[in-house]
């Protein structure tokens, strides 16, 4: 066991972890931040995406020990200070960008990373960026639309609704 200290959603967090403890497990099991989900074991589905030092990573493919000293943001840390949905979360609700909700935390975190890097992405760029986030419910249409809307772009041209 080794002690790790990190800042999670703006607050200090620490715990004793084994070498093999994954960041996702540390967040879920020790910090009880169960918004981060684990949907595969080959680092592909993206339900576990969190931000470490501002970058999107798959927390199921990173050791908790590797995040020692890091700033970690999870979906629980995304809402506005007053608890209301942030602009990305609100766009997901407005455009029905989620159904069962399981992939949603990873989608929100990836969307936030995308918009930070590319504030006005094209639809194709959004689809490409989401290569590492699998959704089985929505067929992606409304996720793409939500992200485009969150970027402040007109989504009227994207059919349906």
């Amino acid at each position: 066991m080794a002690k790790v200290n990190m800042t999670v959603n703006g607050s200090p967090a620490s715990g004793d972890v084994e070498g093999r403890t994954l960041l996702a497990s540390f967040l879920r099991d020790q910090l009880h931040l169960t918004g981060t989900h684990v949907g595969c074991d080959t680092s592909q589905c993206g339900a576990c995406v969190v931000h470490v030092n501002g970058e999107a990573v798959k927390s199921c493919t990173m050791l908790a020990a590797e995040a020692d000293g890091a700033e970690v943001t999870t979906v629980e840390g995304m809402a506005n200070a007053d608890g209301s949905l942030n602009v990305i979360q609100q766009a997901f609700q407005d455009h029905h960008g989620l159904q069962c909700g399981f992939c949603t935390p990873g989608m929100v975190m990836s969307a936030a990373a995308l918009l930070k890097e590319n504030p006005k992405p094209t639809e194709a760029e959004v689809r490409t960026y989401l290569e590492g986030n699998i959704c089985r419910c929505t067929g992606y249409h409304n996720i793409v639309k939500a992200i485009m809307a969150a970027s402040g772009q007109d989504v009227g041209a994207i059919a349906a609704e």
Binding site: L33, T34, G35, T36, H37, T74, V75, E76, M78, A79, L85, Q89, F92, Q93, D94, H96, L98, C100, G101, F102, T104, P105, V108
Partner: peptide
């Protein structure tokens, strides 16, 4: 708009 989205979007789902 779906009311359940609020908990799913904020990590408060109960799976």
């Amino acid at each position: 708009k779906r009311r359940e989205d609020i908990r799913f979007l904020t990590g408060q789902g109960n799976y």
